[in-house]
Nucleic acid binder design. Structure first.
Lengths: 261, 261
DNA sequence: TCATTTTATTGATCCAGATCATGATTGTCT
DNA sequence: AGACAATCATGATCTGGATCAATAAAATGA
């Protein structure tokens, strides 16, 4: 049974507090004006906890806050007219969600929590107020939004041009990069989402996801143990993200060399 | 033979000057502070013309300006590691391009002109300067970028969950909506891009695009005459954008009714 | 603990759309 | 105008991944 979250929930006991890894760190630091952004925080006025299955926001909710995942994971998705669902992202430690609501001031997507998750909340009016005195804050925000646009473009490439193997490899590599970034000691990762959700995100079925994960394991690239993935051969995985076989070309008005200037 | 554009090119003879239809109009009006944004323009300091096959920007170019298409059309695209191309958008009258460069201050995509095209140029430093005195300018920009993120999400849905018919229908409907918005008298449209490019954009081959356009014509929904499309039955086209057949569900933790709050 | 539901896995079959192939148009250049 | 190249159209065939099916393994809950 789905529940709205209770914003008065008790304070989280945090295992991870590495604000420096967070995509919002730039904003937090600017807002706190050099003071320690880890403890006193001028930008983030509130943090709260959600449990598996609870919504962070729903489609149509009016927009007041931007969120960052402090610890845990969530998924975001949209609906088509006929009720089909497209997962638009999985978001873990340090990732920002809610940026799609700034146009129209209503959430177009939904965000649901995949495990017990700590959220940092930034009031948008408060952000605007701070921006007046700290112009650089605005630039940071534009950069963050631009980055989200780039992510969308990369997903278009994945969904439009890559085959099933390349899609899975690309997704696993993005996970691997997060592990590196967050300096988790073990090259392993717990998939908090189902195979079906991975498939939905990548434009595949759950069966195809299973089969390809099994094949990667056979080939000694990863080890799959239920929800856990162990990364064995990152180099081979990298190769698989794009095979350089089929050239899905567009009309470029130029058969010949690229740059003349 | 590809050429860089010559920014000293002669001034355009404009057929369309309806700034009010432009996505940048909100910015222009705010910047000009109530004065007629159509003639004197505080935000757009320069306009120029490009011809078919010329680049507006290329991947890796350093970012200084944002652009709006005043008249004409361009396409934007990115490359994968192995040289595959994904067209990320076709942009006509009133549409803004270049927003993906704000993260990293370099263009990640390329923009190439499909026909003789007038471009409005906004210097980003100039925009920043104006924003200091006009905070609302920043909100407008955030809304514009948020809208671009939404577009990306819709494309993920199209590429991840829609079949070929639905993709074409969706694309034709987006064209139809532009015609309405720009109040072009005839329900017709000139496709300035090739079938191959349409296919590339929609994750299909040129053959599939041809066949489905032919089928739409047989069914009396449109008429295809070379580069021109005539819209006959918008209602039927709308139905075809999503058929409501296959439910590509994600795991939602809830088989039952939606909202409890 | 065991019963029930959800999720994962693996095999067999099918089909939408890719690929291959061949002309017909259309556009461009001299 | 005529020649050449690019683009469009349409038929024949092939195939990657979907669909269907049937357990197995986990998670959930009483």
């Amino acid at each position: 049974m789905p529940k709205r979250y209770d914003r008065t929930a008790s304070a989280p006991t945090l295992e991870f507090m590495r604000c420096k890894d967070c995509d919002m760190y730039g904003l937090c630091r600017l807002a706190s004006n050099g003071e320690d952004a880890n403890v006193t925080n001028a930008l983030v006025k509130r943090r709260f906890v959600l449990r598996r299955g609870e919504y962070l926001y729903r489609s149509g909710d009016s927009f007041h806050e931007i969120y960052a995942v402090r610890h845990g994971s969530i998924k975001t998705y949209i609906y088509s007219d006929d009720g089909k669902t497209q997962i638009t992202g999985f978001h873990g430690h340090g990732e920002i969600v809610g940026l799609d609501a700034l146009d129209g001031m209503r959430f177009a997507s939904e965000a649901i929590v995949l495990e017990t998750t700590n959220i940092c909340e930034v009031s948008f009016p408060h952000f605007q107020e701070l921006s007046r005195n700290i112009p650089e804050l605005q630039n940071q925000m534009l950069a963050i939004m631009s980055h989200a646009i780039l992510r969308g473009q990369q997903m278009m490439l994945l969904l439009g041009k890559k085959n099933a193997t390349e899609r899975l490899a690309t997704y696993l590599m993005s996970i691997s990069r997060k592990i590196d970034k967050n300096k988790l000691s073990l090259p392993s990762y717990k998939l908090t989402m189902s195979r079906r959700d991975v498939g939905n995100y990548l434009g595949l079925t759950q069966e195809t996801v299973c089969r390809i994960l099994a094949r990667f394991q056979e080939d000694g690239i990863i080890k799959v143990e239920g929800k856990y993935i162990y990364f064995f051969d990152i180099d081979r995985l990298t190769e698989l993200t794009s095979q350089g076989r089929t050239e899905h070309v567009a009309d470029l008005f130029e058969p010949s060399p690229r740059c003349l200037t």
